Simulated assay, not measured.
Amino acid sequence: MSPAFVNNFTPPPATVYPDPDSVLASKEPYDINFSFPLHFDTLACPTVRLTPFVPTLHARTLWEHVGPRARELFRYYPYCPDTLAHFLSVVENIRRHPDNCAFAIFDRTRRPDGPGGDSPADSEDGTLAGVMALINTSKQHKNTEIGLVVVFPAFQGTHVARTALGLLLRYCLQPAAASPPGLGFRRVRWSAHPHNKASIKLAKRMCFQEEGVMRWTFCIPNVEEMKREAHGVKREGEDGWGRDSVCLAICWDEWDRSAGYGVERLLQQPSGQ
């Protein structure tokens, strides 16, 4: 008697990182592969604007700022890109899912002829300051998560992170019929390492509600910077260390009731406040 099922699974090929020179030399328009409309008015305010991350425009400058401190900046992540090629593979994994999108963050208070404004990725409307993405999005259930949050060291402690987050929240949670329009999502998630107090503080300032701790959600790389931040317990015979996640979220009813007004006020503040 023949079996009722077979298992023809074969392991996927090992990850091959793209050649940065080939990616960054491309003359073809970059396909962001995004299934949602882009509302650029919603994604901008007087001090910050967001635009889809395009490797040929943004990747080299980003890595100049991030690369030397990658192990520090990614110490809470389940990956630690140690080369530009590795970082480009992270962006490509986001791009492949049509409901996700990575955004470049531009600080509009720093012009190309001002401090820090001399890089090739700068435009006439601000200076590249970091990256932030929509990940793990469910179009059916109208929810998403904000991840790949990396702000250049020179811009940390400024208005950039909170304003960029506020813009993404407005873009996600505003109804489509609102002015400016949004995507009408019901829920936006935020996940943080329990030791990452700055991340949790930022989320709460932007009206996210803490919902609990999910235990052992990630395996983080076996590098010293991350080992010190982990539980200090490693399963015998396994590489890497475990990570819990503090889970926070903001939902459409909270946005409509009061959070949206608070975020809008923040978006209109001068950069120094």
Rank of each mutant, 00 (worst) to 15 (best):
L169I: 10
L169M: 13
Y171D: 01
C172P: 04
C172T: 13
C172I: 06
C172L: 13
L173Y: 06
L173G: 06
L173E: 01
Q174G: 01
Q174P: 00
Q174M: 10
Q174V: 04
Q174S: 15
P175E: 05
P175K: 03
P175Q: 02
A176M: 03
A177G: 08
A177L: 00
A177V: 07
A178L: 06
A178Y: 10
A178G: 07
A178N: 11
A178D: 15
S179F: 10
S179C: 08
S179Y: 13
S179V: 14
S179E: 15
S179P: 01
S179D: 15
P180I: 11
P180R: 07
P180C: 09
P180E: 08
P180W: 10
P180N: 06
P181D: 10
P181Y: 13
P181A: 14
P181L: 11
G182Q: 05
G182F: 10
G182K: 07
G182D: 03
L183F: 11
L183W: 11
G184H: 09
F185K: 00
F185P: 02
F185R: 00
F185E: 00
F185T: 01
R186F: 10
R186Y: 12
R187V: 05
R187C: 08
V188T: 08
V188P: 02
V188D: 01
R189H: 14
R189T: 09
R189E: 15
R189S: 13
W190N: 06
W190S: 08
W190L: 06
W190Q: 05
S191L: 13
S191A: 12
A192G: 04
A192I: 00
H193R: 04
H193G: 03
P194E: 11
P194S: 12
H195C: 10
H195G: 10
H195I: 00
H195A: 14
H195M: 09
N196T: 04
N196W: 07
N196E: 06
N196I: 03
N196Q: 07
K197G: 13
K197H: 11
K197W: 01
K197E: 13
A198S: 14
S199V: 08
I200K: 07
K201E: 09
K201T: 15
K201I: 01
L202S: 12
L202E: 09
L202D: 09
L202M: 14
L202N: 10
L202C: 13
L202H: 09
A203K: 02
A203S: 08
A203Y: 03
K204C: 13
K204V: 15
K204W: 00
K204E: 15
K204N: 06
